[in-house]
Amino acid sequence: MTALRRLGDGWGMLVLPLAAFLLVVFVYPLASVLARSLTDPEPGLGNYAAFFDSPVYLDVLGNTFVTAGLVTLVTLLLGFPYAYLMTVARPFWRGVLMAAVLVPFWTSLLVRTFAWVLLLRDTGVVNALIPGEPVPLLRNLAGITIGMVQVMLPFAVLPMYATMRGIDRRLLRAAEGLGATPVFAFWRVYAPLALPGVAAALLLVFVSTLGFYVTPALLGGPKDVMIGELIVQQLSGVLRWGFASALAVILLLVTGALLLVASRLVDLRKMIGSGS
């Protein structure tokens, strides 16, 4: 039996190669970023002081939060009814709704962002449909929001659908049988049951938007710079390694804190896996 016993311990050992790999390729570089933010160009908290002293940079941080908040709100307004409808629709229509969510999920992010450039330009399709002077939809907050919500909707709809599908609809009927109106039953029975999953999904959307780079950089304008883009600017233009590192640490801390809250609500691994 000792052979099987050794095998049992052996299973656990199988985690080691990946753990070692990530320590070298992922954790070590992140740790050097932290070190760099405190040592480059000189030891101390200078980089952080520079950030919190400058209204320009604080604006970027504020901007980042406002954009993420707006994207999250619009995602909720579009995504919640959508996910709810998926739980009550007939199988065929549920399939159609699901396919519509999965198409952007599986198409290249750049393809989609590029499509928005085509659509939202002054000479683009959307402006062709709107009479009068072209409405500026690109290189501003509207552009970022339109692009980001499309990116984020699948990440919100899939876990929200998974949560809501698990809610026993007989509870609603029971509530109505006990004298509640359908609306009352929805808000008092259904919504509270859906809340943890929905809240966690939205928190994930918010966090992902905070650190997003591609879509804001392509669809936003000079006034809408978010922290991710600022990090790249600090490197590509002026090579301020220490300052860029400090920005990364700040973003990482905010992200980590919010994810900690999200993980209290639901199992994050399930959220990440729900797209499969």
Binding site: L22, L30, T255
Partner: peptide, 27 residues
């Protein structure tokens, strides 16, 4: 398997999805 520091290891394995790619890129 049974192995030590379970929570830490599974956190480590999931971390690359959760850390913003800009930060990973910089690092």
């Amino acid at each position: 398997g049974r192995y030590r520091l379970r929570a830490l290891v599974s956190g480590l394995v999931m971390a690359p999805v959760l850390v913003p790619y800009v930060i990973v890129g910089l690092a």
